[in-house]
Design a binder for these strands. Sequence first.
DNA 1: CGTGGATCTGACAACGTTGTCCAGGGCCTA
DNA 2: TAGGCCCTGGACAACGTTGTCAGATCCACG
Lengths: 349, 349
Amino acid sequence: MPETIRRSDRLPESRYGNRPTMKDVAARAGVGLKTVSRVVNGEPGVTPETERRVQEAIDALGFRRNDSARVLRKGRTASIGLVLEDLADPFYGPLSRAVEEVARAHGALLINGSSAEDPDREQELALALCARRVDGLVIIPAGDDHRYLEPELKAGVATVFVDRPAGKIDADCVLSDNYGGARDGVAHLIAHGHRRIGFIGDMPRIHTAAERLRGYRAAMEDAGIPVADSWMSLGVTDPQRVRRAAEEMLSGSSPVTAIFAGNNRVTVTVIRVLAEQTRRVALVGFDDIELADLLQPGVTVVAQDAAAIGRTAAERLFRQLDGTLVTPERIELPTRLITRGSGELPPAD
Amino acid sequence: MPETIRRSDRLPESRYGNRPTMKDVAARAGVGLKTVSRVVNGEPGVTPETERRVQEAIDALGFRRNDSARVLRKGRTASIGLVLEDLADPFYGPLSRAVEEVARAHGALLINGSSAEDPDREQELALALCARRVDGLVIIPAGDDHRYLEPELKAGVATVFVDRPAGKIDADCVLSDNYGGARDGVAHLIAHGHRRIGFIGDMPRIHTAAERLRGYRAAMEDAGIPVADSWMSLGVTDPQRVRRAAEEMLSGSSPVTAIFAGNNRVTVTVIRVLAEQTRRVALVGFDDIELADLLQPGVTVVAQDAAAIGRTAAERLFRQLDGTLVTPERIELPTRLITRGSGELPPAD
DNA sequence: CGTGGATCTGACAACGTTGTCCAGGGCCTA
DNA sequence: TAGGCCCTGGACAACGTTGTCAGATCCACG
């Protein structure tokens, strides 16, 4: 009696206990399959009376179109992927939101995941999204080799890198002017009389960190100030090590009178360290932080516009999909120096 | 010559310019379709030599399995949806991250979107995710009627509500103890001698806001303090109106000596207002905020554990999918009062 | 009353994958 | 050497949807 075999017998692992399909709706409404499809998709060519019957059947059965099947048939998913580096980082909230807004405006869903700064995980995630056939990818890279994406690019997956450029492939990217921002920030400290200025940043293999370091060096060189190795701390991010790095450059034989912090997490830790010091030490941080204006003194920062970056990236993505954009470009968005007090403190030897 | 018809001619709208399929791989490797499937999925029953040939073809063609087709066939997507309320709110970063970690541990992808506190948008988003056939949904509700999810629940979509309970349906939910937290926070102010205590919170139609208001009232009643209407401001969230509300309750005929802020956004604005006051006004806020300890004075808060909430919710979701969890439950996680100074200021009349 | 045309409807194949089932070939044993 | 078994590989159908195309229905008009 093969007629009595139910779907659930053959697919016991299915979680979708016999969900109604268009076929079921069609049977109940007494119409053909395609007519249901037409109603569901609002296509013309259905009499109001037929449409009513179909709609009734849909409501009665609780039918919901299966987008997987639709995607398979149509070839487009109307979804884009976002691979970010750490969802908990406040910098990525507005960025992610901006990307989502643009996606929504284009009728697309956003699928995302975070790489936790692990290149392997970034790759795994990006490829998983490609396997889902997202129409495009916005990636905040953790690694520096993205050749694994070549087949995807060739297959037409729109791709935009954000915050850091792609490695070893030619792709669109939207960045902040990390070099210029850092240079301006350090020059600001120099303009306020500082000469011994510390720099605490991430590993230079991360593009943003390298650029900001380059900006620091450039500003120092422009002012004719030789940089002591002990003033620089590269590759530290976790609070404990940042703390130790800061304390070291504040003591020693030629203690710094100002610190340039390479990102928001470093800035926060440095603020804590400086709060414990008796000596007033100037501080400029890269990335804005919430409540920076309410601290004593207010924290002077080089601010990135995370929302603008996300918006720009997403818009480029959809222009790639439109076909209005072909040649990969690198776009650098300006940063803004926001003076609030900490960067204007004079040197205290 | 129908043989010369290429896929791109028939589906000109496709973005996936002829992506290779298993069929293509099979042809190139000179094996059958199913053998490729076996290699791709690591199923047994393929000789090393055959596997090598297939793998070679895969690499040469840049083949990537089409998960849409896979999902269609298998019935499970190994993905869960997260509908949150505002990605830019720092409270949701850790929550989202925790959900993602759990999903990842279960081999699932996370698809998310934010409702911007709009009930219609929440519904639209949740149903779109269901159409994608996510295995489960974690929802931070914006609306208070979730009957639209009934067919989905019936179809076996695992669902957990977070931060606020579901409306008009019976579903799992994971919340903070908003009532108890607010009561404790206000009691803390009372214990430090305050009697005229203001409350600024969101619209009471939002469950969390209502519960926190209830906690405020309970604490006041426990202490035998009658509450003046002018001490309460409900339904304000945008900075300007919060500012005005705070300023009003600080002036007037019976000005408050302390304020209980109903959420982190309110807290931040109130801090700004209080910083401009000559009189010292005590403050306790619901939700922790970054750098709260570095302000003068430190901000006393009732902290929620966003990560724990997210983790608990996601774990329950997967237990629903396992079948180890059947009966919907409401779980309330405790809050923690963190004293940092602002809540311990004595009343200054 | 027959025909033309417009409008509506449905049968069918295809999307790319996986589960089922069977065929063929090699190896072991009697 | 024949028979049986195991191991590998492949043909085929099905998942739920949409595009194509042809058939059915209806009305107006000659």
